[in-house]
Design a protein around this nucleic acid. Structure first.
Lengths: 130, 130
DNA sequence: CGGTATCCGCGGGGATACTG
DNA sequence: CAGTATCCCCGCGGATACCG
């Protein structure tokens, strides 16, 4: 992105659409969090589920499948009893994790600031009603 | 984030929830793109609409309002005729833009790789059906 | 244990028409 | 120009039950 510093006509940018499509995918409710959980080491299904917390089996399955389709995670099945499945990041996934961690760090750093803004904004909205 | 390298019990992580809530907000369909468009300079409503391309007035309004509530963008009204409104990033918004641009750059760099993965994954899925 | 299958509600998000 | 107001659809995502 950075959209080569358009001194240009601000007409509809076609590149945006494609980038946006990818961003929508990685920006969905669970994807970023899931990737983060795999950065340090591969994890098993229920291990991931516990770490993330609040995600349903189905959504974790869907999220992992989408990431697999995009070449972000690998899925290794050990045919033991009980069965065991390990998910890990591919090189592509690892490379994406780098900037994502930056975003995550930013959120942690500014979370209280954002919440303060929201509170005062709502306060203001209430006052306007009277 | 980075979740202080948990040597710990991988029990439900409460921090995740809050971070995830923020991530969901900035990760929605239009927010990242909108912030990107404001990095270089303030922009007017319809100017933004054209630059982003494919967004409806309503969604742009909603997105900008949410960003305003979070203290990410400022809204300046010039009571001219016709009316004129300029949106710009606050310091908070600018600081968020930094890591977001990294993610955007990553997407641009790897978009073809991802699409290739998706294609071959679908191909594989089709084969399995037979 | 690691998944599918099924059902379902809510809200994200588009389209259109209208207003100051 | 820069929004509201309305209507409506689709699919994200949760809950539950079942399968290998």
């Amino acid at each position: 992105m950075h959209m080569p510093a358009p001194p240009n006509t601000p007409g509809t940018n076609p590149d945006c659409r494609k980038v946006n499509a990818i961003l929508s995918r990685i920006g969905d409710k669970w994807t970023i969090l899931t990737i983060m959980m795999l950065v340090d080491q591969p994890r098993r299904f229920n291990e991931l589920k516990r770490m993330i917390g609040g995600i349903s089996q189905q959504m974790l399955t869907r999220t992992l499948k989408a990431l697999e389709a995009d070449g972000m995670v690998t899925r290794k099945v050990y045919p033991t009893i009980p069965p065991q499945v390990e998910y890990g990041l591919t090189n592509l996934g690892q490379s994406l994790a780098v900037p994502l961690i930056q975003v995550g760090a930013w959120v942690l750093d500014h979370i209280s600031e954002i919440e303060a803004h929201r509170a005062s904004y709502e306060e203001e909205a209430k006052r306007m009603l009277r």
